[in-house]
């Protein structure tokens, strides 16, 4: 309850925020033990992993994905979204606070590896390739949406040969990039022109590429695609949702196994407590994304 209110407070405008603050204080009195809104196991985890208690860690994000991580349009000094809430709850569970470092998508793992960030919670798909740069705690299934111009003039039905000859906008470093590249030989075999790729460094630029008529499609997380369609209902539509064999993951440095263990344990608590499902609902994301946290590591 406490958790939910404080997240809401971040989004509320000023007068409302004050009212909400009053409500929080009231809730603190009314609820028998307000602090216990945290998953029950967190107290024990703090005992078990005391190294991060009272610390402030840096979370590298690519804050261009409303719903997951983006600045709050009402108060641009704050970041809001599902990933942001998740990170803060992990922090509360283990006793650390988070500050944010906004980087391009392609720079997320570089920033982590160079020590400029401690953790990456930014809707990043955990792949074997990426796991060479950081260990992943997976926490969400992936459903991709295919964003196209209204009416789907190229009749694109997914990452398949309907994309032959189309221009696809993608972010540098996205997993969709190699998937689209893999279409080239297939298109050739069918005697169709190759698909072309335009690489940008954030969602907004990819969406603008379709609006400007430069690109025909943009394949990304289905929730991102839905949000884009919601923002430009007259100009954009979602062609189809496709399943991609990855999970979304939290990246942590490879040389800190203890930290990985602690974050994984905290994720388990948040998953089991139902907070993760509630948060998906709160941010309007598909409840089917929910999955039991796992690990992805490669040597």
């Amino acid at each position: 309850m406490h958790k939910w209110l404080s997240s809401e407070a971040r989004r509320a405008s000023l007068p409302w925020r004050r009212a909400v603050l009053v409500a929080i204080v009231a809730a603190g009195f009314l609820a028998p033990v307000g602090a216990q809104a945290l998953p029950a196991g967190c107290a024990a985890l703090k005992e078990k992993y005391p190294d991060w208690k009272g610390k402030t860690l840096v979370n590298a994000i690519n804050p261009h994905t409303p719903g997951y991580e983006a600045i709050d349009p009402k108060d641009p000094s704050k970041y809001v979204g599902f990933d942001i809430d998740l990170g803060e709850e992990i922090g509360e569970c283990l006793g650390f606070k988070l500050t944010y470092k906004a980087v391009t998508f392609a720079a997320l793992l570089t920033t982590l590896a160079s020590g400029q960030a401690d953790i990456v919670i930014s809707d990043i798909y955990a792949t074997e390739e990426r796991a060479k740069a950081g260990d992943f705690i997976t926490y969400s299934k992936v459903f991709d949406g295919v964003l196209v111009a209204k009416g789907n003039p190229k009749k694109i039905t997914g990452i398949n040969t309907t994309m032959c000859g189309a221009a696809a906008a993608e972010n540098t470093g996205y997993v969709e990039v190699p998937l689209i590249q893999a279409l080239i030989p297939q298109c050739k075999a069918e005697g169709k022109p190759e698909p072309t790729l335009q690489l940008y460094d954030n969602n907004a630029n990819c969406i603008q590429a379709i609006l400007a008529g430069r690109a025909d499609t943009y394949v990304n997380d289905v929730n991102t695609v839905d949000n884009a369609v919601k923002a430009y209902p007259d100009k954009l539509e979602k062609a189809i949702a496709v399943t991609i064999p990855y999970s979304v993951g939290i990246a942590v440095p490879k040389d800190k196994p203890k930290f990985r263990e602690a974050v994984h344990a905290a994720m388990m608590e948040i998953y089991k407590s139902g907070d993760q499902a509630a948060s998906l609902k709160k941010w309007g994301l598909d409840p089917n994304n929910l999955m039991e946290p796992g690990l992805l590591m490669v040597k």
Binding site: H64, D72, A102, N202, A204, Q208
Partner: peptide, 13 residues
Amino acid sequence: LRSTQLASSTFDF
């Protein structure tokens, strides 16, 4: 950077 982030969250490019 602030402008691009704001544009991303508001879609008001």
